[in-house]
Design a protein around this nucleic acid. Structure first.
Length: 387
DNA sequence: TCAGATGATTGTAT
DNA sequence: ATACAATCATCTGA
């Protein structure tokens, strides 16, 4: 009804004002105070107004017939195309500029994560393999967690399934809604000016709305995966202490390189290999290079924080090292008549900074003196005692 | 059960 | 990339 009235008004505008009316809206021109067809126009407008006013008096059939008549009006396509053009040029076109917005970085992050975690990628391989590798790395390759791995994978599969069904649902709903809206707009385009571009734009809006819903789904899936990961793969949750032998090997290196306890990559590899050979409670534990790095990181910081506490240990390992080294140096010591001064040991600097000794208690022992700077390295006797 | 030890992670600086 | 520092989570022995 409303449309019908609009249509009539539009059509009257065409017939009266012409198609090229600037500003476009086919409004009736100012009342005739110019030229001789003023009266004719008045007559036309009067007719149309009359038609509008009496439209409700008409029977349904009559109205339908009139509607049909208007729909079939020969000028209708021309009018609609002009109106569409006008619409494009006005407000609606402003929204069009946003259309080519770049892909959302947040969405890209979520997608990448889901792919990396094996949720959105191919069913087998890539993702789950990566997860398994991560699990293995986090656990240090301990054999007893294969059950936990399968548990983890089962839970991940569950998440994956939920994610895919939900995603499918959203996609289906999106498609259905889009089709529905497109049909509706196509239907309406018979009675009001709707350009294909406008329909396209509407589809874009719908897709954007749905993709924001999808983003929420992805977000919560990511959260679920993170929780799962932290529960299963966080190595802190199931760490095992290193075997006594492994700790001994690491300590030996640490205290024998106290002036510079920063093993090179090769040294770390060597230590990792050595530690991995050791056996704890009948089970061979694998210690990785990164675990060696962690160990040294922890050791350095903890040693520096409380040298006094480590004094005993330091002495013990110093003596131990001395025993093994003694045999090698014994001959040289014997051959050397002069008491060759040992290289001054200033203690290990904490990365670009000279190590500062400020704990009073640590000054009481020979080893702590080593770190005070300027003191000679202790001279070890062949029996391991410090001279 | 609890305090201390210890391996791992995270945030920051270089 | 690496080291430090703080912190977490678990282990261990009393």
């Amino acid at each position: 009804m409303d449309e019908q009235a609009r249509m009539m008004q539009s059509l009257s505008g065409i017939s009266l004002a012409g198609l090229s009316a600037p500003g476009g809206m086919a409004l009736p021109p100012p009342h005739g105070h110019e030229g001789t067809d003023g009266d004719g126009r008045k007559q036309d407008i009067g007719d149309i107004l009359h038609q509008i006013m009496t439209i409700t008096d008409q029977s349904l059939d009559e109205a339908q017939a009139k509607k049909h008549g208007l729909n079939c009006h020969r000028m209708k396509p021309a009018l609609f195309s002009v109106l569409c053009e006008i619409k494009e040029k006005t407000g609606l076109s402003i929204r069009g500029t946003q259309e080519e917005d770049p892909p959302d970085p947040q969405l890209m992050r979520l997608d990448n994560m889901l792919l990396a975690e094996g949720v959105s990628g191919p069913e087998k391989g890539g993702g789950s393999a990566a997860a398994a590798a991560a699990a293995a790395a986090a656990s240090g390759g301990v054999a007893d967690n294969s059950i936990e791995h399968s548990d983890y994978r089962a839970k991940l599969t569950q998440i994956r399934q939920i994610y895919h069904t939900e995603l499918e649902k959203y996609e289906q709903a999106c498609n259905e809604f889009t089709t529905h809206v497109m049909n509706l707009l196509r239907e309406q385009s018979r009675t009001r000016p709707i350009s294909p571009k406008e329909i396209e734009r509407m589809v874009g809006i719908i897709h954007r709305k749905f993709s924001s819903i999808q983003m929420q789904l992805k977000q919560s899936t990511c959260e679920a995966v993170m929780i799962l990961r932290s529960r299963f793969l966080d190595a802190r949750r199931k760490r095992r202490n290193f075997s006594k032998q492994a700790t001994e090997i690491l300590n030996e290196y640490f205290y024998s390189h106290l002036s510079n306890p920063y093993p090179s990559e090769e040294a770390k590899e060597e230590l990792a290999k050595k530690c991995s050979i050791t056996v704890s409670q009948g089970v061979r534990t694998t210690i990785t290079v990164s675990q060696v790095s962690n160990w040294f990181g922890n050791k350095r910081i903890r040693y520096k924080k409380n040298i006094g506490k480590f004094q005993e240990e330091a002495n013990l390992y110093a003596a131990k090292t001395a025993v093994t080294a003694a045999h090698a140096v014994a001959a040289a010591v014997q051959n050397s008549q002069t008491n060759s001064p040992a290289t001054p040991n200033s203690g290990f600097p904490m990365k670009d900074e000279e190590f500062q000794l400020d704990s009073a208690e640590s000054k009481n022992t020979l080893l702590s003196n080593m770190f005070a700077g300027g003191y000679p390295t202790p001279c070890y006797q062949p029996d391991g005692r410090i001279q």
